[in-house]
Amino acid sequence: MREAFFCVDRLSWEPQSGQKPVLCDVSFSLEKGHFYGILGANGSGKTSLLRHLLRLLPSEKTICLGGHFLEEYRQRELAGLVSYVPQTTVPEADFSVEELVMMGRTPHIGRFAAPKKEDRDAVQQAMCMTNCLDFADRSILCLSGGELQRAVTARAIAQGAEWIFLDEPVSHLDLRHQTELMEVLMILAGKKAATVVAVLHDVNLALRYCDELLLMKEGKLFCAGRTEDVGNAETFRAVYGMEFEEALTASGRRYLVPMLYR
């Protein structure tokens, strides 16, 4: 078990003892170089699962990364391996976008050291990928929701981690920026530069960009597998408890139209 992959073994979690568990006996493994989508209805445990994988919640030796339990890593070591784009970021200080992205380099820079050339290059590259260069010196207090989300994603990319976890990264973005960001993530995963794990709400975005899906239902892993195998109307019907009509676009892509009644 020395390979660098995430391995979750019977993860259960209840926020307070005696309460209804949010996660129940979840087991799966994630391999490098993929674009994973975690889907499921509200309250199905997607975000809790992500927070466990990031060690923001205690996992009690049920999650392995590269053959070691998450608990065995020092926080800074983990930050070099795993980065995170939260659902929302509330900017509270007058940092510039470039300064924000540079924070992603923290695990690579000594406590009293200044950023080196490789750090500045990584920051420029990440801002270029996410289209942040135009507003690199703007204050993060003056950004639109979409610009801020792109800047935060740039920070996660600049962090240079092998694993990037995103919690509903495109919920606040317009269609163009949604597509652009998903493209960036797909390129990252496609070049095997990073493994991307994103909680998503839009089944069609997931079908289009993710190559692996994890479907959550009521705290359990409903099913997991390659997108072409599990990403069909039948599975989503069971996961979301509603109807989906499957359609093919002119170019031959599958498209799911969600509806309450057929």
């Binding site: 990031l54 926080q75 800074r76 983990l78 070099g80 980065s83 939260p86 970021t89 695990p107």
Partner: peptide, 8 residues
């Protein structure tokens, strides 16, 4: 949360 995932 962000600070934690950046190694704090």
């Amino acid at each position: 949360d962000t600070a934690v995932t950046l190694g704090v």
